[in-house]
Computed example of a mutant assay.
Amino acid sequence: MRIVLASASPSRRMILTNAGVDPLIRPADVDEDALLASLSHATPARRVAALAEAKALSVAGEFPDDVVIGGDSMLLLDGRLQGKPHTPEKTVERWGEQAGKAAELLTGHCVILGDRKVVETTSTTVHFADASEADIAAYARSGEPLQCAGAFTLEALGGWFIDRIEGDPSSVIGLSLPLVRRALYSFGLDASHFWTR
């Protein structure tokens, strides 16, 4: 039995690898914009969970005997969900909105084994530094935050600009190990079963 990660996220892969797991990577093909549009009246937590669930379900049929994990993250800032900025210009704009503020990073998770499924969203409060314009421009040019929810990372260059978090650090990086552990336990599995070292 393996862990299959329905994501191309290098951060999610890194979390599992650092936790002793060698996941099989099968990125999901999901129309995120269409799904979010269909859930426009749902709560932010439900919308993020739905993205994770859609990703896991799109891959799970190929791996009925393995644990499939789907995940997605978005930043809830001033009542609005923020996804990936994709461009340096949008990154600078986002940081202009969030510098010096606190926001909730919502990370949706879906863990599937056969016909059993755990769907849950974690919420971690992120306190953004009042970073200088020069630093944010340099950070945007680095390319690192372009494919990251909320236009930041915790584990790399972005760590310079996060004053503190309240909640699960692994969830902020992209995948909550405590949540995955609880899901595995609910399936009657131990986390250590998946360790390769």
Rank of each mutant, 00 (worst) to 15 (best):
M1C: 06
L5R: 08
P10Q: 09
P10D: 06
R12S: 01
I15C: 08
T17W: 12
V21H: 01
R26V: 15
P27E: 04
A28F: 11
D31V: 12
L35E: 00
A37R: 15
L39V: 14
H41S: 15
V48E: 06
A50C: 07
K55Y: 07
S58H: 14
V59Q: 08
G61N: 14
F63E: 03
M74L: 06
L81R: 07
Q82L: 11
G83I: 03
P88G: 09
K90M: 13
R94G: 05
R94Q: 10
G96C: 08
G100I: 01
A102F: 06
L106M: 07
H109A: 05
G114A: 11
T121Q: 09
F128H: 02
F128V: 01
S132P: 05
A137M: 09
Y139M: 05
Y139Q: 02
A140E: 01
P145E: 02
Q147D: 12
G150R: 02
T153M: 02
E155V: 05
I165S: 00
E166Y: 07
D168K: 10
P169T: 11
S170I: 09
S171C: 10
I173P: 02
G174D: 06
L177G: 11
L179E: 13
R181I: 12
R182P: 13
Y185H: 10
F187P: 09
D190G: 13
S192A: 12
F194T: 06
T196S: 14
T196Q: 15
